[in-house]
């Protein structure tokens, strides 16, 4: 790791101020993605801005038909939150499968969302659930927020502060893990929401998380595993590596979609 300066602001305003003054500074919350990258010397921030002291970014609350999850809420907290389990059990169950126990004890929803790792789990959930990502400046629908692999609509120095998730009628998630890294090789999150059926795929897309419109239409017409069984995503849109070719991933997307529908009930 290269050395850097360390800041620990106590408020969003202070954090934003530090980040604005130094475009090479990077925010850190749980650090579950940033620190491994720093250890491999893959990037070299001038400063690390630790958000963990900002109390206003924590916690889960229900506001009417919407769950509001603070950006610094840890995966373990999401997995075990009575509010989340009651409102969106699939989201709690998903959180329980992120990384390993130690990642769940440190990693945060805001960090995962802001990073938009193509094999991360939350982006698929938020896209399928039609969530809104709140930052220190604005509110962005998930459809506009996730812009491809490791890319989001966030501007330099802009911080995710909370996630607003409309509570769906039903939702489910299934993923096939990469046998070595345990990250999703193909994951599918399905949701039946007030705004319609939405299906999002993570782990497989050559350009990160994406919505699978053909499956959405099929499930809108017939909410059953059979409805998606015959739908195959185009392998040319998917990535491949030694553990999973694009063709295999395309197959897995269909299998995981079926299982996600079963999981949703």
């Amino acid at each position: 790791m290269y050395d850097f300066a360390y800041h620990k602001p106590a408020s969003v305003a202070d954090a934003v101020k530090i980040l604005a003054a130094d475009p090479e500074a990077r925010p850190i919350s749980g650090g579950m993605t940033l620190l491994p990258a720093l250890k491999l010397r893959l990037n070299r921030p001038s400063a690390v801005v630790d958000l963990s002291g900002i109390a206003e970014l924590r916690g889960v609350t229900r506001k009417g038909d919407t769950l509001v999850i603070g950006a610094l809420t840890k995966h373990y907290e999401v997995a075990t939150s009575a509010e989340v389990k009651a409102a969106i059990p699939a989201l709690a169950a998903m959180a329980h499968t992120i990384g390993d126990t130690q990642v769940r004890n440190r990693g945060t929803m805001g960090g995962s969302v802001a990073n938009n790792d193509p094999s991360a789990d939350y982006p698929a959930a938020l896209l399928a659930l039609g969530a809104t990502i709140e930052t220190d400046k604005r509110q962005l629908p998930a459809d506009e927020f996730f812009n491809g692999m490791f890319t989001t609509a966030l501007e330099v120095g802009e911080l995710v502060t909370a996630i607003h998730i409309p509570i769906p009628e039903k939702a489910g998630y299934a993923k096939m893990r990469n046998p070595a890294s345990r990250y999703a090789m193909a994951g599918v999150f399905v949701a039946k929401t007030a705004a319609g059926v939405r299906v999002a795929v993570n782990g497989a897309g050559a350009n990160g998380v994406f919505r699978e419109k053909a499956m959405e239409a099929a499930l809108a017409a017939n909410w059953s595993a059979d409805a998606v069984a015959g739908i195959k995503v185009d392998p040319s849109l998917l990535n491949g590596d030694i553990h999973g070719s694009a063709e295999y991933r395309a197959h897995l997307v269909t299998v995981m979609a079926k299982r996600a529908v079963v999981d949703a009930g």
Binding site: Y6, M32, L35, P36, K39, L40, V103, N105, R106
Partner: peptide
């Protein structure tokens, strides 16, 4: 060096964490 093996796990405030992935 990829935060996977868990040989470095300690408790921080009672929760298990990988001490190789915390400053």
């Amino acid at each position: 060096d990829t935060s996977q093996c868990g040989a470095c796990v300690v408790h921080m405030g009672g929760d298990s964490v990988k001490s190789c992935t915390i400053l």
